[in-house]
């Protein structure tokens, strides 16, 4: 008797297969965990892949110190529930120089995230890192292999990617080189939401609408997650208004634009996403500096 697998079942099986290949062939894998919805799905898939064992690698959070409080709370809870070791890395230089999104612009992402990630991978000697990037997010990601090779200095050479046939992954590399692996490459934003819905996966409450303290900044709407700290770096206390808002994507709270919304449940969030006319990353500043090839350039420099 045959059974038609749904597209989500096919995607799930593919992602699990990828994770098991990495664990079997890499020396020291790690999962990059950013606490967003994509990370949530990736972590859930890892728990499925290795059950009843806990996933045989640690979670690594490359922290900028500017994430939402709700994100830190969920991060700690999920690490405990999954029985995995949680490593948190904050770039000491960025910390010392007080790098923040207001005074330092693109340097904020570069120092905390790109440099922080490189430092953390080198420090622990990880040779394979799982990331929750999807091909539908951005044009250069759409071109990236599932197993993406990085030189010893973490550079990506998009013009010289290894062929990747069927589901056969070549995980061999020179000493010093590393691999970024994207097990949810073929998932779309809708697939992620639907999977979270069907599997009851815990996500940060900020994805759902609620009355929250907000302020306007350079034409965008932001949440005042830590008003005292904002006042310190902005030089003045921002004008706070309470609005019903939620987030389509989560990053650093001063860099992640909120949307006014009444979507309080997952189906409502999905409904809103499907009816909206702008893309998911639109609320993020990171893709725009540097023009068209901004993400590609960041990846060549070592960003995820």
């Amino acid at each position: 008797m045959t059974r038609n697998l749904t597209h989500l079942e096919r995607l799930e099986a593919e992602s699990i297969h990828i994770m098991r290949e990495v664990v079997a062939e890499a020396e020291k894998p790690v999962m990059l965990y950013s606490v967003g919805k994509d990370s949530a799905v990736m972590l859930h898939l890892a728990r499925k892949a290795f059950y009843p064992s806990p996933p045989p690698f640690p979670l690594l959070h490359v922290d900028t110190t500017w994430k939402f409080q709700d994100m830190y709370a969920l991060r700690n809870r999920m690490a405990e529930e999954s029985g995995m070791e949680l490593l948190v890395y904050q770039n000491p230089e960025a910390k010392e120089r007080g790098i923040n999104p207001f005074d330092h612009g693109p340097l904020h992402t570069d120092m905390w995230k790109t440099e922080g990630l490189k430092q953390a991978l080198d420090l622990y000697g990880f040779d394979a890192a799982f990331g929750g990037a999807r091909r539908d997010e951005e044009k250069s990601r759409a071109k990236e292999r599932i197993f993406s090779f990085r030189t010893a200095s973490h550079g990506w050479d998009p013009k010289n990617q290894r062929p990747e046939l069927w589901n056969l992954y070549n995980a061999r590399k020179m000493k010093g080189e590393s691999i970024r692996i994207f097990p949810i490459s073929n998932w779309t934003e809708l697939d992620i939401w639907q999977y979270i819905h069907l599997n009851d996966i815990p996500i940060v409450p900020l994805y759902f609408s609620a009355p929250r303290p907000t302020f306007e900044y350079q034409g965008g709407l932001f949440m005042a997650d830590d008003i005292d700290r904002l006042e310190k770096v902005m030089g003045k206390r921002p004008e706070i208004t309470t609005r019903n808002i939620r987030f389509r994507t989560l990053g650093c709270f001063p860099l992640t634009g909120a949307v006014e919304s009444e979507a309080k449940t997952l189906p409502e969030v999905i409904q809103e996403m499907l009816l909206t006319t702008t893309s998911e990353r639109q609320g993020r500043v990171i893709d725009k500096d540097g023009g068209d090839a901004s993400m590609e350039k960041k990846k060549q420099e070592g960003y995820f």
Partner: peptide
């Protein structure tokens, strides 16, 4: 919309396979 790499846009050609949904 599809030629996402800088080198592709500059040369107006497709170098690598792009996956779209």
């Amino acid at each position: 919309l599809v030629d996402g790499l800088a080198a592709e846009r500059e040369q107006g050609i497709t170098i690598d396979v792009a996956y779209r949904f």
